[in-house]
Simulated scan of single mutants.
Amino acid sequence: MNRSDTPQRDESIVADTTLERRSSLAIWVSRLEGPQTMGRGVLFWTVAALVVLAAAIYPLFSNPFAVGNSAYFMVWTFMAMGLGVVWGYTGALSFGQTAFFGLAGYAYGVLTINFGAAYGFTWIALLISVALGGLLALLIGYFMFYGRIRGVFIGIVTLSVTLVFETFMAQTAGPQWRIGDARLNGFNGMSGMPPLTVPWPGGDIVLYPGLGLYYVLLAMVVLCYLGLRMLLNAPFGNVLVAIRENPERAEMLGYDTRAYQMLAFGLGGALAGLSGALYTAWGQYITPSSMGLTAAALPIVWVAVGGRRDITATLLGTLAVLFGFQSLTVYGSQYALIVMGALLLVTVLLTPEGLFATAMRWIGRRFKGAQR
């Protein structure tokens, strides 16, 4: 063999490796900026980075109550994004997200009351609670989708599960209703569970509603958002959209539509469970009313107003509606639910794609027109 060929081979190997890395990077970028999500290009990601930076700086110029309240808003975004996947991308309107929320919240309470918070166990309890929410959603999804339940009947089934679970938990007030040291307490709710803790030399860091919890939740929201963007722009997300648009055609192309719907429903349940466990850790309590009819309807309003068919619009709309709803509750509680209902009605009649999604598309068209 000619030794002069060796450097050329090495250069060829390096070139191939570089090409593979570039192609892998292109795949990741394409999944962040694919056709199933709005927002792409340098301008979008620059604005997104500035928003996250502003959110990170905000607690330094605010009071502890406002910071804890902002953390409360972020807790609910996971359930909203999960419902966006189930309803907006899969086409299955679920009224049962609060059932998974409540199951995970109670599971977190039972686990942490019985086993404590030392050595970071709260995070293990959080993961177990999320898994339970996802497993319940997979079980319900299996019977619904493999039972060929469609359309409005999905909403009826999921709402029935939620109301049955709420009614059962409200009737567990007696002393016999306990799991180890954790009493369920009926309609009064469970309390006394520890917040999230971070193991640290010299003692665990307790994440009470404040600066620490705020930054943990901010990081979780960003990671969840980016992960969902990549998932929805991957082949899995493309199949979900195909099922939403025409399930019969997707089946004729060889896809098991029921399996995809069940998996999407399980993902939505896991994200709702994440909200439930974080809510319980944030407030150190959970009640059956968090799964009631009003609680079940509110996520529908958040996602519809934001825009159910885009994860960015869902996230922004949820935060905006939560802020508005809380303000209405503080200054005019008797009108808050009426205004929310009116907002949903206006959205459905005038901007069925969602207020934020419609606004984002309008801004995008105007910006493209200005560039020309």
Rank of each mutant, 00 (worst) to 15 (best):
V29Q: 12
M38W: 11
Y72L: 15
A26Q: 09
G34K: 09
V51H: 05
I57N: 06
M81H: 10
W45Q: 10
I57P: 12
A80Q: 05
V47P: 03
W28P: 07
M81I: 08
T37H: 00
I27S: 02
A26D: 02
T17L: 09
G68E: 00
W28E: 14
R21C: 01
G39V: 05
V29M: 07
V52A: 15
T46F: 08
Y58K: 03
M74T: 01
A48R: 04
T18F: 11
L83R: 15
V67M: 12
S62F: 03
A66G: 05
M81W: 02
Q36V: 00
W28K: 14
S24M: 10
P59N: 04
T46S: 00
I27M: 07
S24H: 09
L19M: 15
F65H: 06
L60M: 02
T46V: 11
G41A: 00
G84H: 06
E33N: 09
I27C: 02
G39W: 08
S30I: 00
F65W: 08
S23Y: 14
P35E: 08
R22F: 01
W28N: 14
T77E: 01
L25S: 13
M38T: 12
T18V: 11
Q36N: 14
R21M: 06
I27R: 14
G84I: 06
W76F: 14
T77Y: 00
V51N: 12
I27T: 05
R40F: 11
L19E: 15
L53W: 10
N69S: 12
P35M: 04
A55T: 09
L19T: 15
R40V: 01
S23L: 15
G84W: 07
E20S: 14
P35W: 08
T46P: 02
F44L: 01
I27F: 08
M81Q: 07
L32P: 05
V52G: 14
A55Q: 07
V51F: 05
G84Y: 09
L32V: 09
I57M: 13
G39K: 10
G39E: 06
G84T: 11
R21S: 00
T46A: 13
L50N: 11
S30R: 10
S24R: 15
V52T: 11
G68K: 04
A71M: 12
S23R: 15
Y58S: 10
V85R: 13
R31H: 05
W45A: 12
T37P: 10
E20T: 14
F78R: 07
M81G: 11
N69D: 08
E33Y: 03
L25G: 10
P35Y: 03
L19Q: 15
A71T: 13
A54K: 00
T17P: 09
P64C: 12
M74W: 09
L83E: 04
I57Y: 14
P59A: 09
G82V: 08
N69T: 13
F61G: 07
A26L: 12
G41C: 03
F73G: 10
V67Y: 00
T18H: 14
N69A: 11
Y72R: 01
V67S: 06
M79K: 00
V75C: 07
A80W: 05
G68H: 04
L60Y: 11
V47H: 08
L32E: 09
L50E: 11
V85C: 02
Y72Q: 13
L50T: 07
P64A: 12
E20Q: 15
P64S: 11
A54P: 05
W28I: 03
L83I: 13
T18C: 06
L25C: 11
M38S: 14
